[in-house]
Write a protein that binds this DNA or RNA. Structure first.
Lengths: 183, 183
DNA sequence: GTCTATATCCGGATAGAC
DNA sequence: GTCTATCCGGATATAGAC
């Protein structure tokens, strides 16, 4: 794995653990056993690094969507929900939730990429729900896009909130979502 | 209004606008037309100030709960949801969502008070839902506490997410919640 | 591509005068 | 209760050697 890729991986973990404004280039260099200046060689500014992290998500998501495109709606929604299960296991929050909280402090350029990521996720979940509804395996009383918004907000905030309530609550929320849309 | 109260008010706004790690004592002093050191006179450390902000919420919430305790469940849930409508109008996110995102960077002491605030909100919404269910005006298929978790996560994340999708989505989510629980 | 060294700036915090 | 002045540490970022 290239240093560049490793930096992106660690930056992602740090953003989701401490937030964009709370991690430093030194944190990354320390984790990789290199120096501060070496990180700047790969990413001149923090903004550059942030954009690289978001772009990595855009690419990964594209791949994930393609891989599951031919699957059943039930399995596709599980693929989506399982992303958060992994994140919960890490004890971290999701990238979108972290950056959305810091939105007023990030560079407008980064914001543009973040918007693209959110759009892609929303369209993906909307598509899964519409497909499930058309095939008669899902049922809900609002338009698919609205139901997608409800599910995404449940998942995003569950990572943030269940560190303060009961850790078991994450799984409760996830199961409630599945039960709720299953016909 | 005392300087102390004004500092708390501005700190709250800044936390919800930029995040706990992105605002400074200078930001507050500037807004009040006083100096950095004067803010430290009222709150020696940033942690002290953070705790004061959370305690202010605990007190305000207590008051709000007492004021609406005798009202109908429909009105009580509207009181709860209207908190987020005001916050959305400000273009900010909620205090719990902001601090929960920065959870790993805040002092353990602050975390304790934040947990109390989340508990109080969760108990309040759970109580409203249980009351509505008992009176036959609300209906839902999970236990009240779980439904409360679903609603709170919808609201918390809607503030963060709808700045990146469509501003109108906030109202859509709110109306979907009301429609969903209304018998 | 990584290093040492350093410039620059900002934020939290304190001392002591008024 | 607010001020001036200052310390200190940490963070972004760059220059230039290896």
């Amino acid at each position: 794995m290239s240093t560049r890729s490793e930096i992106i991986k660690i930056a992602d973990e740090l953003i989701r653990e401490k937030g964009f404004n709370a991690f430093s280039f030194y944190d990354i260099s320390k984790a990789l056993g290199i120096k501060n200046a070496s990180v700047h060689y790969h990413f001149p500014t923090k903004n550059d690094l942030g954009i690289a992290v978001v772009n990595e998500y855009l690419a990964k998501l594209e791949e994930m969507m393609a891989d599951s495109a031919d699957k059943e709606p039930t399995e596709r929604i599980n693929v989506y929900l399982s992303i958060y299960t992994s994140t919960k296991a890490e004890g971290r929050i999701c990238l979108v939730g972290s950056l959305a909280s810091d939105l007023q402090t990030v560079d407008p350029e980064l914001k543009v990429y973040l918007k693209q990521l959110v759009d892609k996720i929303l369209n993906w979940v909307t598509d899964i729900l519409a497909d499930g509804q058309a095939r008669g395996v899902f049922a809900f009383s609002v338009v698919p896009r609205t139901k997608a918004l409800m599910i995404i907000t449940n998942m995003l905030a569950s990572l943030q909130l269940t560190r303060l309530t009961d850790e078991q609550d994450f799984e409760t929320i996830k199961q409630t979502i599945i039960k709720d849309i299953t016909k």
